[in-house]
Nucleic acid binder design. Sequence first.
DNA 1: CGCCAGGCAGTAC
DNA 2: GTACTGCATGGC
Length: 311
Amino acid sequence: MSTELLLPSPAGLTARRQGDRLLLTGEEGEPPFSLEGTLQCGQCFGWWQDGEGWWQGVVGNTFCRAREEGDAVVFAGLRPGEEGAILSYFDWDRDYRAARELLCRNPVLRRAVAFAPGIRLLRQDPWEALCSFILSQNNNIPRIQKIVRALTALLGQPLAHPDAPGTVLHTFPTAERLARCTLEELAPIRAGFRAKYILDAARQVATGRLDLDAVAALPLEEARAALCQIRGVGPKVADCALLYGLGRWEVVPMDVWMKRAMAQLFPKGFPRYLRGYEGLAQQFLFHYCRLCPGALKSRAAGRAAGGTAPV
DNA sequence: CGCCAGGCAGTAC
DNA sequence: GTACTGCATGGC
């Protein structure tokens, strides 16, 4: 079987194409990142595991099946040319070792990183991220996943995978497709009061009144203001869209307890050495605190999670 | 039954 | 500017 080495990769990481598989390997016999940590840390809602440990989700127009095999993250059943979008989605070009070293200067962040060192920030589609986080408001993660899945099944394009006969995933519906819907047509996804919000967002994006790519390039406060003009988008949802969909790593989406966590961590504000990594720090903290309730206050929890971080 | 869920809009002061 | 409430739905 032919092997094609794909470049560029950050130091110590390798991306290889072998037939219809994409193999990503990391340093010292470790996978380059954690699929579970990355896909289940609350930044995306469209992935889940099948009965055999394969993570299934859609990147762009590609039905992806991925799992960890030894020291590699493997994507199977790819067609020619699909690996580029996948590498971009998983933020392949970025040096996460350097990022972790920065975060680990803070003792609490060091515990959060040690708890799940393989987390990456995905480069999600701007519209998909905005729409998903509108649906997230006053909602819990399992139900957000349910609604997102129902939305894609209702309005997305069906996709098959050669290794998963009988399984159909759907692309995330475009803003144009959603904008053609009525509230009544959206009833089956059970989004409740959020349905009218995603319709407003879809109409603004579809008509060009809101250009998400242009918003991504605006100064932060202008970008926030542009997003908050959408009905149902406030500061929290806007910041989630900015961080997860528009690549703005300087943003920390603040819910009530994240405010408390940040105040406890950095009472005088974010330290200068972490500038540009605020959003990544928040993601490690969010995942850590969600799976280890009380971890921020408990030294015992810190030891249980491993007091020192591999960097 | 009540409470909560990665909030926000409307309203009152 | 802050404080309060309703909102749809489902899980516990």
